[in-house]
Simulated scan of single mutants.
Amino acid sequence: MRPLQAIHYATPNPGPKLIVTGAVHGNETCGTRAIERVLAEIDNGQLVLARGEVSFVPVCNPKAYELKRRQGDRNLNRKLSPTTEIREYEDHVANWLCPLLARHEVLLDLHSFHTGGEPFAMVGPENNDGPLEPFRHAEREAALVLRLGVRRIVDGWLSTYAGGVARRRQRAELTGQHGLETDPDFGVGTTEYMRRVGGWGFTLECGQHEDPAAPEVAYTAILNTLAHLKIIDAPDPAPVAAPQALSLYKVVDKIDADDHFARHWQSFDAVPAGTLIGTRADGTPVHADEDSAIVFPNPAAGAGQEWFYLARGNKRF
């Protein structure tokens, strides 16, 4: 198995500290390919770093990467934090990755998704002092997310996930089956951890796993981020025209492995109120509760796992 690896570059001039990560999920390799391309350009002098520092982690989860699947023992991007209780491979990764994230200020985390659809970025909340996800860098996130090269921008992850955890806990009280998925911090991944330690950043979903365009989306986002942060001497990219902003508001889990979709959904397909989205194994229909868009539909999800999300439009961007 390949070792955990971070490639770090530091310039003599003050500037931001950026970290770019790939393959948090082992079957999402577009970020790995893009990072490898950028590393080659830095090393051959084609891309010159002018100020600040930048670290690249081409493969965050080597076990999952070698197995060519989403996770090794568990999902690295859930309940991400250092731990003294080493139970699974991803605990070792977390104890290495979390301090590395904390040494930086900005994170660009590169992902892809299961079904087809247009690339999109996920951002944090607006500035707030609330108990769930206090934050003070919303303006910085807004300025950069409009320059990553994608037009769709999604927020509401952690609050939506917290609602899903609450529903899982209710089911667990009935069944007596309490697992990691019922932990209130289960929705904390790379970007949420970064915000908890004072930083900011994005999850960029670059396209479907096998889409040959996805590595190019990731590569463009890296270059645009380096330019916007002035780590390289290049013009600030122009903001994307006509961004589409949405907020997640509900996550729906599979209850049974035989729960199935009514059709082949892609992320951001419209689901008007009353639309049949899927059917439970016992025949119970699952409908859209309001005019929405479906996000991250996963027909391969197992029982108790996230099946799909719903999002509504907002006017934030």
Results as ranks from 00 to 15, higher is better:
R136F: 15
H137C: 08
L132C: 04
G149P: 07
E141D: 08
G116E: 11
W157H: 15
M122T: 14
G156S: 10
R147D: 06
F120Y: 15
R147N: 07
I153E: 12
A142D: 08
L148G: 09
G117Q: 10
F120D: 01
E141A: 04
F135D: 11
P131A: 07
G116I: 00
E133T: 06
G149W: 07
V123R: 12
F135N: 14
V150K: 12
R147Y: 05
R136K: 15
N128H: 11
P131F: 05
E126T: 11
V150G: 13
P125E: 08
N127W: 03
L148N: 08
R140Y: 00
D155Y: 00
L144T: 11
E141Y: 04
R136Q: 15
G116M: 03
D155G: 00
V145N: 02
D155K: 00
F120W: 10
E118A: 10
E126M: 10
R147Q: 07
N127D: 15
E126Q: 14
V150N: 11
H137N: 10
R140W: 04
G130Y: 00
G149M: 09
V145L: 01
M122S: 14
A121N: 02
P134Y: 01
I153T: 11
V145G: 02
E139K: 14
R136W: 14
R140F: 01
W157D: 12
W157R: 08
I153S: 13
N128R: 09
R151W: 08
V154K: 10
L144E: 13
M122G: 04
L144Y: 11
L146H: 13
D155L: 00
R140M: 08
G156K: 09
A138Q: 08
M122L: 15
I153P: 11
P119T: 05
